[in-house]
Design a protein around this nucleic acid. Structure first.
Lengths: 194, 194
DNA sequence: TAAACAACCTAACGTTCGTTAGCAATAAGA
DNA sequence: TCTTATTGCTAACGAACGTTAGGTTGTTTA
């Protein structure tokens, strides 16, 4: 039980992630996970402390991934707000496409976290989304973006981002960069021909 | 037990709707519902046949509402694709704002439906979303919309629509029409100044 | 070779789950 | 007034839940 993560624990979390995505956290039993792994339910407790610990690990690991990708995309980058937004969107989509199952759990199952974990999670998410608000505000302030209702613009962006995991599977052989860029294109340019 | 719906059954479904939204279907027990109503769990079965029946009623009633609103908004209306899209979005948002809790259940809990109800539900949803695809396609074909990737445009629209229920509560004293129109504005015109 | 560990087992714990059976009280309709 | 709904109760069913205790392997490490 040293600092390293034994490979079997990762296997358990991976199986749990897939089941949580398919059926939801509350509707997935320890016996379901055990069966998927070909072992007995009680045996799971050699590798994890509790069912919720698994959910916590998934949620906070993904939160870290989103944060890191966003930071990498933006720190030190100087460009227009539109360029920043595009980079942030691409980074976001990249994280989702790299692990769609864990992302789905991240977006849909966090509400089953107990306190204080849920509060912490919501704060992290809010900080993350705040970066998008910041970029949008910058673009509106310097006249780069058209003066729509700011709140609705933010909500539309976040909606598009938060829903991506729902349809990604079906999109086929497109890279995360391509997907992100096209998404950003729709958001930035809208539908109407000018 | 005639054809009409006794008022108490509606009360049960309303309470269930709120709990399903807050905690999710699987994490809400019959005893939770009973407690919220101030009765015993067994007493619920004087008004409903099963837990899932409640979910089915919510999901299919909302599906009907979305359909009807869309039909009302579009049948007999002749206008540009942009105008059609705006009307469809306003209608959609109006349904959500008229019952945010039931909408949240509709969008998030349908996966707990058993067969054949889930299949039927997915087909209805697909037909509903198909109308948006149609409008978009029309706008692209006649040159009204700019030639972005069609699939991504659809997905962005649906994302924005499917996520509305998540944030609507916080928007304050805005009417459904105003909200829908602003959403449509963002989607049609994008962020960038041209 | 002995000790430590990882991985899994059987058996069972107390709890909660959705649901049923059977009954009682009240109110409404014939 | 008799009947039929409506709304609720207590008691309990069998099943499933998350989890623990205690033990058995086989493999690595000292």
């Amino acid at each position: 039980m040293s600092g390293r993560m034994p490979s079997k624990k990762k296997q358990v979390e991976l199986t749990a992630t897939n089941l949580f995505q398919e059926r939801g956290y509350a509707a997935t039993s320890m016996r379901d996970m055990a069966q998927a792994l070909g072992i007995e339910a009680a045996s799971l407790y050699s590798h994890i402390r509790s069912k919720e610990e698994i959910l916590q690990n998934i949620c906070f690991r993904m939160a870290r991934m989103f944060f890191e990708a966003q930071n990498e995309a933006l720190t030190g980058f100087t460009g227009t707000a539109a360029e920043k937004l595009e980079r942030a969107i691409v980074a976001h989509v990249k994280v989702i496409t790299e692990d769609t199952s864990a992302s789905a759990v991240f977006f849909s199952e966090w509400r089953h976290l107990s306190e204080p974990h849920m509060e912490e999670f919501k704060q992290m998410r809010n900080r993350y989304e705040g970066k998008f608000r910041e970029i949008l505000h910058e673009g509106l302030r310097n006249g780069e973006f058209v003066a729509l209702d700011e709140r609705f613009a933010v909500l539309t962006i976040l909606s598009a981002l938060n829903w991506t995991h729902q349809w990604f599977k079906a999109t086929g052989p497109m890279s995360a960069e391509e997907i992100g860029q096209r998404l950003a294109d729709v958001i930035l340019n809208g539908l109407k021909k000018k």
